[in-house]
Amino acid sequence: MAITAPPAARPAPVSPVRPRPERRGGNRVVFWIGLTVASVAFLYPFWWVLTASLKPRSQVFDNLVLPRNWAFANYLKIWDAAPVWTWFVNSVTVALAAAVAVTISSAMVAWAFAYYRFPGRNGWFGLVLATMMLPGAVTMIPVYLIWNSVGLATTQVPLWASNLFGSAFYIFLLRQFFLGLPRDLFEAARIDGVGHWGLFWRIAVPLCKPALIVTFVFELKASWADLLKPLIYLRDVELFTLPRGLKAISDRFGQAGEQQWEIVLAGSVITVLPMVVVFFLAQRHFIHGIATQGRKG
């Protein structure tokens, strides 16, 4: 028995097994240290803001890792100083409306370009792509005047309603995913009598759920962060979204105002934290979406 194939008969471990030539042990440790240092640099500002928002005013800038005295009352102060809960609800409403609207409308348009062969298709698609080049500043003023002329210029409607008509970037993204679906599937369904809407809504959409979630979370993030539109449209403090509210708080209590930084900090935490939570829940989709973006470009 012992005669057959001793371990030594295996070929000497030369190159083929090594997955990556440059991954030498020493280097790897260096990279680990570098990445850890970078992570601390990237994450410490979050920690600083969170802890500083829990310090009393005189200690906000003491740069200590933990508060010497915990001042949870800062969050009660901001509660009294500004309608933060209303702003939060406004932000959630607007961001959800914007994200749902853009996802459904962009998917419909993307589906038209991905599945159908129709006269004018290439021309229209070129136009869709061309609109991505147009800076928002060009249409900013006329769109404001249009909303003004229908009496909605000081409401939240302009913050999300234009999303009902699709957005070039997402149309492009979703079209790529629809193009990846096998055509036979739809031909078979049509023979079975599935209508045009059924092809889209009952077959294509469920199959492209990951891409739709990517669209949804991207727009949720973009809408949550938007400052320019709320600045243009919202006059009534009760209608503010969190970014607009944070700007108001910063003007009143920050550098130019009363220097009550603990309130500004609490406001910053309230603005940032919800998206951080959403990100951790949906990080797979965020990262998948961005990685795809680069590949398609």
């Binding site: 803001v49 993030k221 910063s250 940032v272 959403v278 990080q283």
Partner: peptide, 18 residues
């Protein structure tokens, strides 16, 4: 590394001052 990117730019500006 992606976490700062979910921070709204308005907060980035306010945090800059501090």
């Amino acid at each position: 590394f992606y976490l700062p990117e979910v921070t709204p730019k308005v907060a980035v500006g306010v945090l800059f001052l501090m």
